[in-house]
Structure formats: C-alpha cells, structure tokens
Nucleic acid binder design. Structure first.
Lengths: 335, 335
DNA sequence: TACGTTCCGGAAAACCTTTTCGGTACGCCT
DNA sequence: AGGCGTACCGAAAAGGTTTTCCGGAACGTA
C-alpha cells in the first residue's frame, strides 16, 4: 500500500525515451514526434503516473495553491464564501489550503507563516463580521479581503452591499403598498446593522415616508430580541403594516409574536428578513421573504480577482457585491 | 511586492557559512558551534527567512499536507468535522487541503487525482449523510472515512453512535418520569433515522414501556413534517407526555404545534431534539434539550487516527463516537 | 559530394533544501 | 614530534520536474 509513487524517470524508461522527452511529450511541447508522444502517454497511463506537484512548483515558482484564512468557520457567513472560492479555484488547477484562526490573532499569524512557507500563490482573508479588520500588511503574494474589508485602503476588499440590501428590502415592501414600515435589527456596533438601516431609511425618505415605530430597533442578532422588540413595537405603534428585520433570526422572532397577537402575515403585516438562511427562512410560517447577500458569488469573485492578481498586479479599494431579493410568502401586496 | 522569497543560500551568505551549516543550524542539528548557530539564526530573522516547504517535501518524501474531501460543504454536519480536523492538524505542522465534491462523483475523482498529485500524506473523506458510501479503494496514502463509513470493511471509518444517541434521549426522558413517549423522526431511508429509533425502542423495552403513538413517525427532516406529524400524533394519542424528535428542526415543528394546542412544554409534554444545532435549539421557546453528536471531536479523532497512520499502519473497521446529552428547558421532571 | 535546413531527442542546469561524508584544525597523549 | 580523537564546517548528492541548448539525422539543394 505504501508504494513510492511512480516518477517521470520510470515512465521515460518504459517508453524508451529520456526524461526530457517524456516531460515534453506529456506537456504538449511541439518538439516531439507524434508516435513517440503516444508511446509516452501510453506508458504514463499504464503506470498511472501523476506528476509530483512539489517538484513542479519548485521550478515554475508557482505552487498552484492559495490560502483561505478564515476567522471563524463556525460563523455561517464564512461557509458560502469558502464554497464559492473553492469552486472557482477548483476549475482552475489551484488547490485551497483551509486555515481557521478562530478569531485568535496569534493563531492567524501562525497560519500565515505556514502558508507563506508553503509558497501559496495568493491569499483570501475571510472575516467573521462585516467590519473593517487590520491589514496583514505587505506580503510577497497578493491578498484579497472578503466579507470583512481591510482597514488599509491600499488593500483590495470585497464586501456585501448592505446599504443596497436595506434599500432593496424596503423598496420591495413599498412596491407592495406598505406604508407603515418598521425596522428591527441587530447589534448597533455592527457596520452591517448601520448600513442596512441607512439604506432602508434612504428608500423611505425618497418616498416621503417616516419609519414606523419612531426609531430603528437595534438590539442583538437573536430570535429572542426579535420577539421582545416586536412586543415593544406593537405597543408603541399597533398600526404597522410591515416589518423589515435585520436578520432571518430576528424575523423568526417577529413572526412568532405576530402570531401570538393574532396578526396575520402577510395580509395584515408583511415581514422581510435578511441573510436568506435557508433553514430559518424557508421553514418559517409562512416562508420568509428575505435578502440574500450572494455570498457564494462573493467567494467566487474573490477567487477570480485573486487569480487575475497572481502574476498580474492587484487593484485596491473596496468593491461591493449587490444583494438579491428572495420573495416568499411573508410579503404580498396589500389587500 | 512580488519579490522572490529569500532562500537558505542568502541566509548562509549573510551569516558567512555554507548552505549545509545554515540548514543544520536552523534545524537544531548538534554539529554546529553555538556562536555560529546564533549568527545563522540572526541572519535568518533579519532576512525573514522561511524555508520552502516544497523543497523540504521533495527530499523528506513528506508534504506535510492532508486532503479533506467533503461531499457537501453546505450540509451543516461537515463543518464541525472540518473544524475539528483542521484544529487537530494545525497543532501539528500539517496543512489541510479543502475539497468539496458537491456530491458529484466525477468531481470527487478529479479532486482525488489532484490531491495525490500534490503528494498529500493522507486523506479524510467526510460524507454528507451517515450512510455507507463507496470506498475509494487502494490508495498510496492512508484514508479515513468520517461520518459516512466506507462500504469496504477493510477501510477505517469513524461514525456517530446514533443508536446510543437514541437510547440517551429516551433514557433522559424516562429518568424525568415520562412514560408516554413518542418518536417523530426524518427520512426512513437514512440509517441515522433507523439507528436512533432502534436505540430509543431498546431503552423503552428495557423499561417495559411501549412507544406512544403506536409507531415511529418517519417522514422527512423538516420543521413542516414536525408540525404535521405532531398533529396526527395528538389525534391518535392525546395523552403523550414526551416527544423525542429525530432532529432539532423537527423538534421546532413539534414545539410549534404543542403551543398551538395549548400544551405546556415541559410541564405537560417534554421535548428533546437531536443535533444540537445551536441556532435552532438554543433559540427555541423554551430552549431545546437535545443530543449532540460531538462532531468536532469526531473530526479531531479522525485527524489523530490519520496522523498515527501516516508512516505507521492503518487499522480497519468502524469506530463509533458517543453522543452527549444537552439539557435545556424543554425537558424537566414530571410534576 | 558538399552544404544548409529542419526535425527530434538528450544532456544538463535549475529550483531549494536535507543529509552524508570527508576534511581541517586543534588539543591531548605517548 | 608524531599519532589520535574530537569538534566543527563544507562539498556534493539527492529528491522530481521543466527548460534551454546542443548534437545528430534526414532531407533537399547546388
């Protein structure tokens, strides 16, 4: 079982040519006769030869690998980004090193060192929450920051368009004839919460509408807060006809209390969430309209940008990826 | 920015020694004077030298990498396993290649080929669902199957003890004085569903109890099924005092209908779930007792087994990892 | 026949590190 | 003084591949 892998030397020997010709034959170089090429290829197949990528990397100065440095795998936002990136790279010849720093700074440094030692061709840094994070600084390889942008504007970052997402949600409610729209969202220290609220308020202002409930209800990203805030909101303003929740978790809490209060969704009150966290949104009662951040596309995009940067030169600044509206049954036209 | 990495040659030159001595100095070999060693180390630090792992791997015949081949990253079960494995390897010097086959067979083959070409030292195959999957066959490196066992008993597989988990859940309910226990679970074609039911029934039998509701309610792994099954169950047998749900999703549906029917949880009916999917279990009303499969530990264990197998020899057969009871408020003693 | 072209295949360097082995210098003993 | 052991350092091979360059053969032309 632990037989040493076959080398090009053995393939060459079996085909009766030199190592050099064998290499050229397998790599499609022109300076080799068709008949010899066939012989080499057959020999390679017969021995089940696969070239040693380490040796290749040594001479080409390209390892064909990239590092995916995430702050927390647990967080559900990292996963789709990873998937997108892995997918995009997979179709090229590059493999992906997965490193989870678990939010620990020294662990991140440690992983970074290891990755550089492995001569990765590039790096994608995936943040845990969508707020700016410290830059890794000058590195011998291109780096792309995904989800959480770098604090250094000289780096290239890819982030979600949370402002556009908030706008999208409220726009959807307005188009369905809603006029008394409230906004319950998460932790005010999150840039994402601020941005989504900003987008929502901007769209309301365009329509000449005021926010129902007198304020943006910041709290935390939990179902429990969704329940609590909704109770307070209904006390303050029983006449609302729509709620924009800052996350699907919060939206679940909102739905729960609306049911308790015998308010029908969506005929009396429309509810829209954020994240399109399928397990929560699709299984809600009724299924929840929500905003999808296109995280997988963000990951794919990061991979593409990185791929372009390898060998070429890297841009800088922050690029935003638009959100997408997912309509289910929790929103519907009035009447 | 794209400066070529520093090599040992440059370090040696700066320290005024040969490449060989520089290598020995940095690797703690004894045949080098302390003063020279210091000089080399200082030179290495000054140049920020990090050894080229590709070159190292070429001579030592160890790449210091392993492949993590998952069938679907999306599935929430893979993630904790990945985390555990990544964590365990991280503390060694091994890095992890992440490959997502997306349930596609040809993609899996493609990734496998790429990984072998990169001369990984070993492989962990993480399945999407806990049923046996085809073996990858004889490979030049040790392979460990996690979560989904291999069909070939000659391979080494690590799986969840679902039977024990089912037993654990029912045992907990019994200890709390419950006697009329029903079981609502997911897709009957899943081995996990069968096993959990088997464990549950075995524990009931030990106590001389019958399953309430006359049958195991197989359906699918959704909240909606949890709701539907609970309605049917209550019609069939309104006197139940506990429900063992095959997943936390299903448990959420169960809770929902119990609320609608004005049955208090846990005083009238206790509910226990499975998976300890935090977002669902901890935020339920009331917070859900559940069974945790210790997936992260399973991943860690897989890493350890693989690490032991590298260089050594690999065992075979199927090893099970026990489940763990998580008590929250949805279960409590009767009265 | 002599010479220039074209086409193929091979020898060897290069990538970067580890490790073995041989060599030098020095102190010690006889 | 000569021999020997020890401590330290360097030269060189090895690992597997790519690529450059060169040599030889075949062929056509003068």
């Amino acid at each position: 079982m632990t037989t040493r892998p076959v080398t090009l030397r053995e393939v060459a020997k079996l085909a009766g040519v030199s190592i050099a010709t064998a290499s050229k034959a397998l790599n499609g170089q022109p300076q080799v006769r068709a008949s010899t090429r066939d012989r080499v290829i057959r020999a390679a197949e017969q021995l089940n030869f696969s070239p040693n990528t380490l040796a290749q990397g040594l001479i080409t100065q390209r390892s064909g690998t990239v590092g995916l440095l995430t702050s927390d795998l647990e967080g559900r936002f990292s996963i789709p980004i990873l998937m997108g990136a892995e997918d995009a790279f997979g179709s090229d010849q590059t493999s992906v090193f997965l490193c989870d720093a678990r939010g620990d700074n020294v662990r991140e440094k440690h992983h970074l060192r290891a990755l550089l030692s492995r001569r990765v061709d590039g790096l994608i840094v995936v943040g845990a929450r969508p707020d700016a994070r410290p830059s890794l600084g000058e590195l011998p390889v291109p780096v792309i920051y995904a989800y959480a942008p770098s604090e250094d504007p000289a780096d290239l970052s890819l982030v979600t368009d949370n402002i556009g997402g908030g706008r999208l949600a409220v726009d959807h409610l307005i188009r369905h004839g809603r006029r008394r729209i409230a906004h319950i969202t998460g932790d005010a220290t999150y840039g994402a919460a601020q941005d989504r609220a900003t987008g929502a308020l901007a769209r309301l202002a365009e329509e000449g509408l005021e926010l129902a409930g007198d304020q943006v209800w910041f709290g935390n990203w939990s179902e429990a807060w969704g329940r609590g805030a909704t109770r307070m909101l209904l006390q303050r303003d029983p006449e609302i006809d729509a709620v924009f929740a800052g996350s699907d978790e919060i939206a679940r809490g909102v739905l729960d209390v609306l049911h308790q209060e015998k308010l029908d969704v969506p005929s009396q009150v429309a509810v829209i969430g954020f994240d399109n966290w399928n397990i929560l949104a699709a299984n809600a009662r009724p299924p929840l309209s929500t905003i999808d951040m296109n995280l997988e596309q963000l990951g794919r995009l990061a991979a593409q940008r990185l791929f372009a940067a390898i060998g070429g030169t890297l841009g800088s600044g922050t690029e935003t990826v638009p959100c997408r509206l997912i309509t289910r049954e929790s929103t519907a036209p009035v009447g």
